[in-house]
């Protein structure tokens, strides 16, 4: 199955597949961010591979690590083929100044909320998403809490309606 998938991706998308990564037996492909949708849809529609189940969309923030220079954010898409009982990941590295991905919400209904969560907590934009708004945090909260530069040690989050009452701690990078 792994070989079939590898040949499929290499044949159809060539240089859009940047590299392959296997960790503890789990297969991932790094791809060009903008090619995500065409690759995902091709995998979904192929009658043999049939990766029709989008398990999860998530993102990792690599700020402060030695490998941050490759791209601060690492998007992770987990796909499952129910037909072949096979799971693998598509990954894409995004620089901080271009944290944008194409949306999958038109092809998978579950992507709508998953992408909203990624936007809310990590601030990655999804081009073409019908309603990219906050989903988990309160409307007044400014910033994206899962980013590494969003402080965790300072207890009081800054809400716009009580900002006058809060003493601003100067060395918190978030302020």
């Amino acid at each position: 199955m792994e070989d079939k998938l590898r040949t499929f991706l290499k044949d159809l998308f060539g240089e859009k597949i940047l590299s392959e990564y296997t960790h503890r037996g789990q297969l991932s492909f790094y791809i060009q961010p903008q090619a995500l949708r065409e690759i995902a849809v091709a995998l979904k529609n192929d009658s043999d591979l049939k990766f029709d189940f989008l398990t999860d969309i998530t993102v990792v923030d690599h700020q402060g690590q030695a490998w941050e220079k490759d791209g601060r954010f690492e998007m992770v898409y987990i796909f499952l083929s129910l037909k072949n009982t096979f799971q693998f990941m598509l990954r894409a590295k995004l620089p901080e100044n271009a944290a944008t991905m194409p949306t999958l919400s038109k092809d998978w209904a579950c992507a709508n909320w998953l992408e909203r969560e990624v936007w809310d907590l990590m601030g990655i934009k999804f081009e073409g998403h019908p309603e990219l708004t906050k989903i988990l945090t309160v409307d007044e909260l400014v910033g994206h809490p899962l980013r590494k530069d969003f402080g965790i040690t300072y207890e009081m989050p800054q809400f716009s309606h009580n900002s006058d009452e809060i003493e601003v701690v100067p060395d918190n990078p978030h302020h």
Binding site: T58, V60, H62, I78, C110, N112, W113
Partner: peptide
């Protein structure tokens, strides 16, 4: 599902929980 990213230290760099209820509710 638990997606865990480790940067080699004793604290996880990222823990993502794939919440079944979240996706089901959508």
């Amino acid at each position: 599902g638990f997606f865990i990213d480790s940067d080699g230290t004793n604290v996880p760099n990222r823990v993502r929980v794939r919440p079944p209820s979240f996706v089901n509710l959508s």
